[in-house]
Structure formats: structure tokens, C-alpha cells
Design a protein around this nucleic acid. Sequence first.
DNA 1: GGCTGAGTTTGCGCTAGCGCAAATTCGCGG
DNA 2: CCGCGAATTTGCGCTAGCGCAAACTCAGCC
Lengths: 232, 232
Amino acid sequence: MNLDARISVLERSSFFNDANRDTLVHAAETASECPVAKDEQLFRQGEEASHSYLLAWGRVRLDQTTSDGRNVVIRYLGPGDLIGTVAVLRRKPYPATPVAVEDGMTLFWGAEKKAQLIAEHPVLATNAIELTGSRLEELQERLREVATQRVERRIAATLLRQVRHAGRRVEDGVEIPFTLTRGEIAELTATTLHTVSRTLAAWEQEGILSGKRASHLVITKPHRLVEIAEQE
Amino acid sequence: MNLDARISVLERSSFFNDANRDTLVHAAETASECPVAKDEQLFRQGEEASHSYLLAWGRVRLDQTTSDGRNVVIRYLGPGDLIGTVAVLRRKPYPATPVAVEDGMTLFWGAEKKAQLIAEHPVLATNAIELTGSRLEELQERLREVATQRVERRIAATLLRQVRHAGRRVEDGVEIPFTLTRGEIAELTATTLHTVSRTLAAWEQEGILSGKRASHLVITKPHRLVEIAEQE
DNA sequence: GGCTGAGTTTGCGCTAGCGCAAATTCGCGG
DNA sequence: CCGCGAATTTGCGCTAGCGCAAACTCAGCC
């Protein structure tokens, strides 16, 4: 990636919202590139936070593992999303393990460079607060769902969230443009893969959605899914 | 509160960590004071975020209500904690309703003044990221607990969290220095008040803790509670 | 001091959904 | 093309804990 390509990637990220040319150039010049292969981990939960990443393209799943070995999917990240930035700024260990769900490319900065970038460009600090706040809001929403809703609603809400983040219109409806297994949906919604499988099988029968394994989920009746998510 | 008293309040808040005298004075001079009475709401979830608060003393519970009228307790706030700041900075509606659990006092700033404070004192932006990140981390932890743990463990973890945030050594053990009802514990741990009641009754019988209603919970065997929180 | 309402406790029936087990499917790599 | 492993599906027994109902407790207010 040359400088212009990098700048093009950066200006599409909300972390660089309202950033001027100087900021973009500074960030582009100080960044390094790192391709990431499917299933590769950028870093591991618990490690010292040494680098902060921005996903140029590809998709990444953010996993947290519990002390008894269970996994919770925190979120899916797409192009323009930051990875590891808050941990770097806080000088805390990484709280999660980002796993690439497809081949991709990242730009990354060492902790010092990132802190300097933010110190010299206050708009980036403001944007970091915005982004962290946005993550906070989403987690609050998820906690509310898990605390108060049955599984079906939660699955519907989770799929709609992926649609909102990354959904793509296709001929039959809306596609979630990355691989999402029943197991992963289970780890996003605090349930088991068996329950997800049963639920999705029923919805597939009903024509609400289709897709499994490497074929991406396609929501054919999004309004139906919204109804399910909002039922009492 | 005179200026020195305000400064004393501010410098004890982690939002003002590493802030110099100028910053503290600026913040103290531009703040207004608002006492808050037990059960009073500072603002309501969904309202436009117009003011940002810092709790000088007292305790506040942060509630989120779902569309079907159920309540989730997001966290308890104590002296030095910010209330509504992220929403103000993000120019989003308030995501929660802060309810005073005892009489207290707040300092507050209008949105413009707060944004200006942060723009003129970059250390505050850094601290805001730190604080938001810390909230994020806690919510991730709670989500992991709800997703993967049985109720008992969750209750234990929740009580230990209050102890860590606000616990006070007393003669018999560690006191949680604010009123925490079984219903509120239920809303913190995604369970029902009946289950909390049963669990706490058993633990009280076992000598692990004591206290109900207006009498604060006292954890008499904290190590036992840690064991429960960490069991598999 | 008495009353009241909110908080706590307890019994118990019920079920959502967990988790075991096994069968089926399918995508990928050699 | 075949084998294999991971993903998906399906049957089913079981139980953690929900939620209804009712009784008890106690703090605060008049």
C-alpha cells in the first residue's frame, strides 16, 4: 500500500472522522502494514498491549475466553475498525483475542507512536472517546438482552446487529458478508450451538433466512426478524 | 462548597488524574453544584444529554430500562465518578437513569463547558478514554459471567465487585457502604430477587455475610465468597 | 405507638433451554 | 475423488432457576 492507499483506508475509518490532511498523512506515514491470514490471531488476550491496529480490509472476530475455558464473542470487526487501541492507550493487557475470519490487511502502530498521534491530533482523542462510548453502548444493549430476553429474541437481535454493521443488499434480501457459524452465534448470544441450530433451522423452514457453513447467512425476511426481536 | 472544597473533590476523581492546578481551577470555576436527594433521578434514560456530572459525595445507581419495562442495574457510582459525560461528549441521548441511593452532592457542567474543558486540557481527554475503557472492561466481564456462569457464581462475583469498588473494612469483615437490596442484586446479576434471596439466606446461614434492607451488607468471610466466585 | 408499604423469605410447579449422544452434512486438502 | 474433521442437525432426559403465591419482617412516617 502506498501513502495514498493508506490515507484512503484511514479516512474511511470513523477514528479519523473530521481529521484533516495533516493528521491523515502523519498517521499514514507512521503506520506499518501487516497482512493477516484467516484464523490468524493478531494478539492474545492477556498479553501486554504493544501495538494498536486498524483493519484495512477483512473481518476479525473478537474473542474473550473465561477462566474455565469457555468463549464469548465480543464482536465482529470490519474495515476501518480499531483493534487493541483502548488497551494500548490504557497501558493494560489486551482484553480479547482478535481472530481473522478471512484474509485481510491491517495497519498498525506501536504504543508510543499511537499515543503521540493522539496527543498531537486532539480530534483523534475525541473520536476515540466516541468509539469507546459506542462500544460501551453496544455492550450495555447486549447485557440488557441477555439479562431480560429469551434466546430466540436474542438471536434475532444479534443477527440484526450484524446486518446493521455489515449487511449487504443482495438479490434475495440482506447478506451478512462473513462466515458466521451456529457456534459463533451461540457465543454472541449466551446460548448453545444446539439451540441456535434448532432456531435457525426453524427460521430457514419459515423462509426467514438461509445459509450455513461457508455460505453466508442471507436474511430474506428482515422485517420478520425485527418482529421476533421486538416481541414480548 | 468554596473553590478549594471543589478542587479537593475534583482532584480525588480519576477523571482529573495528573491534571495540573490550572486544570483543576478551570474545572472548579466552571462547575455548578447540585445537591441530589435519595431516590432522585439526575436525568432520565433517553433524554438529550445536556449536562455532565461528577459525584462529589453520595452514591448513585445507574439503571437501564428495557422496552418491556424490565430494569438492569448497570453499576453503582461513588464519589469522584462521572455521570453522563460520555453521552454529552458523544452528543447522544443519555443511555441510563442515575438514581441517588442516598443524599449527595454533584458538580455539573453544561455540554459546551465540558467539551471546552476537555479541548483545553488534553489530559482530561486521555483520562476520559481511560475511564470509558475501564467501564467497557467491566461490562465485558459481566457479559462473560452472565453468558457462562450459574447464578451463584454471578452473585458472588457481583458482591466482590462492589467490595472492590467501595468496600470498607469494619469489625466483622468488609462492608458494602450503601444499601443494596436483593432486588438490586438481581438486576445486577441477571436473575430474580427470589433466587438472590435464597442464595443470600443460605450464605447468611453459613456465616459468609449478613445484612438486609437499610443495614448494609457485611461480608464476614470474603475468602469464602472468592471461592464461590471462582468455582467451576 | 400503629400502620403501611416495601423488602424478604419460602414453597412449589413448571419450562426454557442446556447438554449428552448420535447421526448427518459438507467443504477442504491431498 | 476420497477421507476427514468440523459444522449442523436432531432426539431426548434433566435441571437450574423462573415466577406465582403467600406469608413474614421491618423501617419510616404520621
